[in-house]
Design a protein around this nucleic acid. Sequence first.
DNA 1: ATGGCTTCATAGTGAAGA
Length: 256
Amino acid sequence: MKIATWNVNSLKVRLPHLQDWLISAQPDVIALQETKTEDANFPLNVIQEAGWHVVFSGQKTYNGVALISREPPTDVVYGIPDYADEQKRVIAASYGKVRVIGAYIPNGQSLDSDKYQYKLSWLSAFKDYLQATLQRWPHTVVVGDYNIAPEDRDVHDPKTWEGSVLVSPAERAAFQSLLNLGFRDGMRLFEQAEQTFTWWDYRAAGFRRNLGLRIDHILVSVALAPLCRACEVDKAPRKLERPSDHAPVWAEFQEV
DNA sequence: ATGGCTTCATAGTGAAGA
């Protein structure tokens, strides 16, 4: 079973890239973030006609998440239960015994911003949600754009990023507290090349110079981790014309 | 160099992203 995540930065713009990637990578489930599409405008027919199931939760201009799958989803849950949030950032579903949560964690903007406080409280609610999810579904993967680079080795130039969002001690502590619930950082289950990133700045030729961050993650529950066979970034879509600034990340699992 | 580029909403530019 292959589970992937991709911040597409507008599904409308990236639909051709997504269609190509679904064919070339053959994921069983892919979580999308930043669809930036109201549900009424979601390209449902295009995806269904290509043979996929899809559930989604979107809004105008910002945010928006979706889960595309080969098999139909069950027990679909939208948002974080009991956490009022107008921003469409979370969607979850089961595929057989495997629970998949797709998330677009807030960016935070800057350390002195209200959005940073929103990010930290959001992460607190998300943690409670993951804890409850694990109790019901031991085989859970939590994928998406976390907007957190967990360690300095996940940052192209830690000095440049010091004092910014995505790398602050509080954000990194929140990420660690998610792992402490009983998850592994999927990519860290395997050897990765130095300077392996999932996002590169559009500006200043960020991708060509590998000025990136590793902020898109696949968290694998401890029950599922022994079944994980690989976890990698696919940089190929980032090289296309008019790419998303994020690359897809995928993990392969032996059947549960 | 607090910019660079890209998106959306708009019909000039501004907000936001990371």
